[in-house]
């Protein structure tokens, strides 16, 4: 396709076509890089986590990093007022009760180091949690015979989630008051959040306001949006063999 007008004058000087044309490297580079990029859908998370582990923590959380992301469903985030806060435990038990923040702190505390996995694909390794085991919380009460589950309600309405009793009593489940040596900060769910490392993070209700002992593990906020109730890391929500 020529763009040049008809010439009546002698041929203007032109460089040799070969030197002027060059080699069509560009399209090859485009296709190769695009293919490499798309292939990273298969290996990207592994590579990402490996690099993030190698980078010392404490650097600003620019990718790749083991950085947290804060997802919320309503604004603003709940504010913790130690003077008025209480965690209410009610439902299918003989003696419903309320705990103040000081009450929670007075319960025997346990520590653990766990990884945190978000269902969207990012993770934070080696989070130091300190808090109260569910067993400890329910020690002084009797659950009704038909009690099968615990429903966790957040001050961030309408966020909630539920676990079966069996899941809630797993050895690494806790109500965390401290993260990485410090009391929970506001973005991370102050004053207390549910921690269940074997499941994706959306099960770990933040800004915990009340716990209801119930007949079954009703679908919570994200479960109503289509996510799995039993949110086992690597084998739920479409990951692993799950559908």
């Amino acid at each position: 396709m020529t763009e040049l007008p008809e010439r009546k004058l002698p041929e203007p000087k032109r460089r040799e076509p070969k030197r002027r044309e060059g080699v069509p490297v560009g399209r090859a580079a485009f296709l190769g890089l695009a293919a490499a990029g798309i292939s990273s859908l298969a290996w990207g998370k592994t590579a990402f986590d490996a690099v993030a582990s190698a980078i010392p923590s404490g650097l600003p959380s620019i990718a790749p990093s083991n950085g947290w992301r804060i997802y919320s469903i309503s604004s603003p985030l709940p504010t913790f007022d130690p003077a008025t806060y209480s965690l209410e435990v009610f439902g299918l038990l003989d003696k419903p009760f309320k705990l103040s923040y000081a009450d929670l702190q007075d319960l025997p505390q346990e520590r653990q180091v766990s990884d945190f996995h978000c269902v969207t694909g990012w993770s934070v390794e080696d989070v130091h949690w300190e808090g109260v085991r569910i067993q400890e919380l329910l020690k002084a009460v009797n659950l009704a015979p038909n009690a099968r589950a615990l429903r966790f309600n957040s001050a961030e309405l309408p966020y909630d989630s539920a676990l079966t009793l069996e899941q809630a009593l797993l050895p690494d489940v806790m109500l965390a008051l401290k993260m990485d040596g410090k009391p929970l900060t506001r973005p991370h769910g102050s004053p207390v959040r549910l921690v269940i490392p074997q499941m994706y993070g959306y099960k770990g209700v933040k800004w915990l306001k009340s716990i209801e002992v119930s007949r079954e593990a009703f679908a919570g906020y994200w479960e109503r949006e289509g996510y799995d109730n039993d949110a086992w890391v690597g084998r739920s929500n479409g990951y692993g063999d799950s559908s």
């Binding site: 859908l41 298969a42 290996w43 990207g44 694909g121 929500n237 479409g238 799950s242």
Partner: peptide, 13 residues
């Protein structure tokens, strides 16, 4: 919304 499209490498990419 759809587990068919959930790949753990998406966010890394």
């Amino acid at each position: 919304r759809d587990t068919r499209f959930r790949l753990d490498g998406s966010i890394a990419l």
